[in-house]
């Protein structure tokens, strides 16, 4: 059974309950709870979404409406690393299209897809607030500025190293 189908751990369920109790209404914890599941699992599978909905006392459809609304919540599996290349205006002016083409070519995927070795998911992202160092990108939790093709090539090599 894949991790996406295994029930959430008791600890995680307890953490979600605590988040819900800290809010005036449990649904106020929706985003925090879904983020928590994603932080542990990498993405939010339907069985896990159902479990969170159950803890928060919401219908699964109601919670899925939230999960699918926010672009940083993943309802499909992603790779071990996520590259988000800014596609907003300042980065566009500073040449992000060329970087996008380079990433697609090097990774052999289109934006929104994951490499065959499950190492990298490539997504576009709105302005990252790093416009004075455009083009910018976010790789997992790390912000990069003044991105060029050598930076990308080096980074991809690092990210492709198999997990320990």
């Amino acid at each position: 059974m894949s991790i996406a189908e295994q029930p959430l751990s008791g600890d995680l369920r307890a953490e979600i309950r605590a988040l819900a109790q800290a809010e005036p209404h449990p649904r106020g914890a929706s985003v925090a709870a879904l983020r928590l599941v994603q932080a542990h699992m990498g993405w939010i599978s339907t069985p896990h979404l159902n479990e969170v909905a159950d803890v928060l006392g919401m219908s699964a459809a109601d919670l899925d409406g939230i999960a699918t609304y926010f672009n940083l919540l993943f309802r499909r599996p992603v790779g071990r690393h996520v590259i988000m290349l800014c596609d907003s205006v300042s980065c566009w002016i500073m040449g992000r299209e060329r970087l996008c083409a380079h990433l697609c070519h090097t990774l052999d995927i289109q934006p929104g897809q994951t490499t065959a070795d499950d190492a990298i998911t490539f997504l576009p992202i709105v302005c990252l607030g790093h416009c004075d160092h455009a083009p910018a990108m976010l790789v997992d939790d790390t912000l990069y500025g003044d991105v060029d093709t050598p930076t990308l090539d080096h980074l991809i090599d690092t990210l492709r190293e198999p997990p320990p």
Binding site: V31, A32, Y69, F70
Partner: peptide, 27 residues
């Protein structure tokens, strides 16, 4: 003070959409 870490969507910066998001609804 509590930090609410959001999960994207520009419209959340609109103050009433922000409140809706905090209440655990589509913003």
């Amino acid at each position: 003070i509590h930090v609410h870490v959001s999960a994207g969507r520009y419209i959340c910066g609109e103050e009433t959409a922000l409140l809706t998001a905090l209440e655990g609804r589509r913003a």
